[in-house]
């Protein structure tokens, strides 16, 4: 019956909307707790350093490989689109600006989000289902202060650092492809790099990376904390953490690009 279908559809939408509102509410409460425990969380500096190693140093090789090929692809694409339209002396400029404004921060966030977001959600999700988070609370240790704050701070600090590495490697990858397959000389590539390099472009990329780090750390911790059930629940939490991190990175990239390039770094 179509009417029956409509009622079921309405109930489904209402149920899903209720779940979504509840989830947003829980996320807001977690963010509030992170704000509240920021200063006490910094007291455990050793925990923050441990997480910085896991998030930053642990992601470095993956970021190096991805960035090297990103720079290479950027060079190939630029050369293809320049053909007979723009002189190849500008290839360094195009690679530099596209990497530091957009490709470096966003691709680094997506790669680190996949690796770190999944790892945080799986670790905290397993701790939740094996009662380790309850054990912390039973010992009067606040789990947000002990587990969430160090991870969020570490992600916020390390993502810009990893992004700087990613930018450098991608520009190097573009250079290698430019001189080996496109026929641009080292001198031409370097002049192109210098010609249109503006510090504000680098800053805008790094500001984005700070926000992306916050998103990755928060979403990984949030889905870890709300894990229910056993292995299936942990798997679900991991998937949700990665998907939500990637989607939020791309949405916030659009918003930040508008705010940063049109207003803050416009002049």
């Amino acid at each position: 019956m179509p009417e029956d279908l409509a009622v079921r559809g309405y109930r489904y939408v209402r149920h899903r909307a209720g779940d979504w509102v509840a989830e947003v509410g829980r996320l807001t409460m977690l963010l509030g707790d992170v704000g509240r425990f920021l200063a006490p969380g910094l007291r455990s500096f050793g925990l923050v350093v441990d997480q910085m190693k896991a998030i930053g140093v642990g992601s470095l090789w993956l970021v190096v490989v991805v960035s090297l090929f990103t720079g290479g692809v950027a060079a190939v694409q630029a050369a293809y689109q320049f053909s007979s339209v723009v002189p190849l002396k500008y290839i360094g400029s195009v690679i530099l600006r596209s990497v530091i404004i957009e490709l470096g921060p966003v691709l680094t966030a997506l790669v680190v989000g996949g690796r770190v977001g999944a790892s945080i959600a799986a670790e905290l999700g397993t701790m939740k289902v094996t009662e380790q988070i309850d054990a912390l609370r039973a010992m009067a240790i606040n789990p947000v202060r002990y587990l969430v704050v160090p991870r969020v701070i570490a992600a916020i600090v390390m993502l810009p650092v990893v992004t700087v590495f990613a930018d450098a490697i991608a520009i190097f990858g573009g250079y290698v492809v430019s001189i080996t397959t496109i026929g641009v000389s080292t001198h031409t590539y370097v002049v192109g790099l210098k010609q249109f390099f503006y510090l504000k472009d680098l800053y805008s990329g790094l500001v984005k990376a700070v926000f992306f780090g916050g998103i990755i750390g928060t979403m990984g911790c949030f889905y870890g904390f709300v894990t229910e059930g056993g292995a299936e629940g942990v798997g679900l939490a991991t998937t949700r953490a990665v998907v939500s991190s990637c989607v939020l990175v791309l949405i916030s990239d659009y918003v930040l690009a508008n705010v940063l390039l049109r207003f803050i770094f416009a002049s």
Binding site: T126, M127, T130, E131, Q132, A135, R137, A138, A140, N142
Partner: peptide
């Protein structure tokens, strides 16, 4: 409140069913 509750919890020890040891 959570802070006052933590003061009460400091007088407790709890052995969980699966021990709930921290793997890391």
């Amino acid at each position: 409140g959570e802070k006052a509750l933590d003061e009460v919890r400091k007088n407790f020890g709890m052995l969980f069913q699966g021990a709930a040891l921290f793997d890391s």
